[in-house]
């Protein structure tokens, strides 16, 4: 088996409570995936790239995951990283491009990996939580909502976006962070004209959206006033177990959760595949 050239794109994250810079959890998971993959195939290289300020202290945390070297395309914040990244990556011609699924700063449209995959002629697989490479054939496990998993096969060269997942991220090793090198390359700084047109306001929690009702809303209101409401806040005192169980199952049915519906979902998805 020949070694792989694995490029990982790393961005700066933002802690949700304090707003402080941190590793982007998705990117950190992508890096962990890349390092684990490189360890299984001898001769593989992990080429980590960040576009931004090489002096950002948080970059050391990525090194702390066991990365020896991180290349930084030096550009001021707010620049469009695409042209420089494209140029850099074309020169590297990687077999595999791994990135986090979402950025935590800036526009965070998640578009960059798609644009790079397009430019590099790579097949893109989103939402990858597991990957198994045999030669140039890859089998990917995708995380679907509600804990479902789908398997996808595709050939190298590939780009994969990776979600952080729910397991905690590896803690960066202080010693490895100290040992790793940051290599800064001058890069083209092209300001993003689009961002200028955006009006920025301080973020505030939006109220939970209420649906606009056409009909039946008056009835609902009346019912809640007369206590005859049965959907929200229903209470059964000392029912016999059968009644209680039936009520619970009915409610689960309304929510669409009892297993029967799960199974039909599963079969439908596979049906779709067989039709294809």
């Amino acid at each position: 088996m020949t070694g792989l050239a694995i490029v990982v794109l790393l961005s700066l994250g933002r802690h949700p409570a304090t707003g402080r810079p941190r590793r982007n959890p998705d990117d950190a998971r992508a890096l962990a995936t890349a390092l684990a993959l490189a360890a299984t195939r001898s001769g593989s290289r992990v080429l980590a790239v960040h576009a931004g300020d090489p002096r950002a202290p948080v970059l050391r945390d990525y090194l702390g995951q066991g990365l020896d070297e991180l290349t930084v395309l030096d550009m001021p914040s707010g620049s469009d990283p695409l042209p420089s990244l494209r140029e850099h990556l074309v020169a590297l011609s990687p077999d595999l491009l791994l990135t986090g699924q979402r950025a935590e700063n800036g526009e965070a449209s998640g578009l960059l990996p798609y644009l790079l995959a397009e430019a590099l002629g790579m097949t893109l697989v989103p939402g990858v939580v597991g990957l198994d490479l045999q030669g140039d054939q890859g089998r990917f496990t995708q995380a679907l909502p509600r804990g479902r998993r789908r398997q996808i096969e595709a050939r190298l060269p590939l780009a994969a976006t990776i979600p952080a997942g729910t397991a905690g991220l590896p803690l960066p090793s202080f010693a490895a962070a100290r040992r790793g090198r940051i290599v800064s390359l001058p890069a083209l700084a092209s300001p993003d004209p689009h961002l200028v047109a955006i009006e920025r306001q301080p973020w505030r929690q939006l109220p939970r959206p209420q649906p606009r009702r056409l009909k039946g809303s008056a009835i609902d209101r009346l019912k809640s006033m007369t206590g005859g409401g049965e959907a929200k806040g229903r209470l059964l005192v000392d029912p016999d177990p059968e009644t209680a169980a039936a009520q619970i199952l009915d409610r689960l049915g309304e929510i669409g959760l009892i297993r029967a519906s799960h199974q039909s979902v599963t079969s439908r998805d596979t049906d779709g595949r067989t039709e294809r």
């Binding site: 802690h15 409570a17 304090t18 402080r20 702390g64 905690g168 803690l171 090793s173 202080f174 490895a176």
Partner: peptide, 28 residues
């Protein structure tokens, strides 16, 4: 911890929060 960053359970998660928020609870 410092060399291998090998901690069990929630320890790694909490230490990461501590580094980023200066509080164990992660609330800042």
């Amino acid at each position: 911890t410092l060399e291998l960053a090998a901690l069990p359970g929630k320890a790694a998660l909490v230490l990461e929060d501590l580094r980023l928020t200066d509080t164990l609870s992660g609330r800042g």
